[in-house]
Amino acid sequence: MRRTWQTAQVSAARPETADARTIRLRFPEPVTGTAGQHVDLRLTAEDGYQAVRSYSVAAWVPPYELEVTVEELDDGEVSPFLVGVLAVGDDLEVRGPVGGWFTWTPDNGGPLQLIAGGSGVVPLMAMLRSHSESRSAVPARLLYSVRSPASMFYGGELAVIGQENSQVRLDIAYSREAPEGATAGRLTHEAVTASCFPPEDAPAIYICGSTGFVEAVSSWLVEDGHEPARIRTERYGG
């Protein structure tokens, strides 16, 4: 981990949805870290004004690169720039990767229960990728709540992991608009209970989403009998 700011270059970028973009950053020296960590990005205007924001690492691309996925927030100051203006070849100041709490490595064991609300899927995708790449024998499940099929991140890759990796189960919950064969509606306690490993399996649970999402889901899981100490949460802010 680097404790100081260093300059990374945008080496690739691709749209993830209509208002989200995955940005690949190339570091001047090898960069390593753990799934679930984040990086701080610092932007500086001509007059010296600075803004710092944290973004979860979505993917590690060793040895020099990692990817973050940024969703454009209405009235955001930094995300509209990162999604709409930043170009391949531009430099960004980066601190990290940092964070040691909301992280998972194959050595942590499992079962691994991931629950994502919207763009909260980003750090959980890093965990799922780490799980797949290490060919972990740990059973893993991802419950991913999205507004509509069009607002889903990493759709193609998730479908492949779901089909090819028998250790992984994917449940997608659509809150506003569902594809054919599925129904849309608010995520319910029942749906979360049905998707999760039962408390007797003592899963390691990671929940990431808006404050409301995280608080609702974690309180349901505690009600279901999951040990609060096995539930780790990350609320994404603006």
Partner: peptide
């Protein structure tokens, strides 16, 4: 040691 990752 306290600098490595204080959030944990």
């Amino acid at each position: 040691q306290f600098v490595a990752d204080l959030t944990s």
